[in-house]
Design a protein around this nucleic acid. Sequence first.
DNA 1: ACCGGGATGTTCT
DNA 2: GAACATCCCGGTG
Length: 202
Amino acid sequence: MLQPPPVHRGERRLPRSFYRSDPIEVAPVLLNKVLVVGGRAGRIVEVEAYRGHDDPASHAFRGRTQRNAVMFGPAGHLYVYFTYGMHWCANVVTSEAGSGDAVLIRAIEPTRGRPEMEAVRPAARRPVDLTNGPAKLCQALGVDRALDGADLVTADRGVTVVDDGVDPPESPAVGPRVGISVAVDRPWRFSVPGHRYRSKPW
DNA sequence: ACCGGGATGTTCT
DNA sequence: GAACATCCCGGTG
């Protein structure tokens, strides 16, 4: 079967330079960009920054392993990891190679391929349940180990992030990170204020 | 609406 | 053997 092209008219892929900054700078400007996986896509509405060197909550904090190897590579690649025995989550690698820095995608609003997402997420009762969490959105988009390390700049394996003309929020909502047991209170979680598809109460 | 527990297996101590 | 960047379902109010 023929896959639709990942990038449509009026959209442009983000250049490598976009990703080569501190994750705390990249995270808020990723808001309102669109994550594309083959024929499915969604607008990014919530993210979290993780720093490799001084952040004990980061998978990269204790050094390079087989799992987190992609985090230590060049910026603009997708880092996909498996957790709780059943869930996949996706990050965008930032900063310079070797930094271990990344931004976790925590919520998106579907923009293309909603029927396919509904088909693979039967547990979603309400529309927002389709993609309002880091593992939910990966299931909806079909993100798993096969996409770990994909280069977003070249749309490697059909995965990319595009700008479709919607600017990031002028003042993103900022709050503590979620689901971790150390360095919880660092205000490195960002979202589009008031957006319906955000993952938890703000 | 809110809360508690179970699922399920890879990764690292 | 414990922890885990989570989700879902069934209980109660």
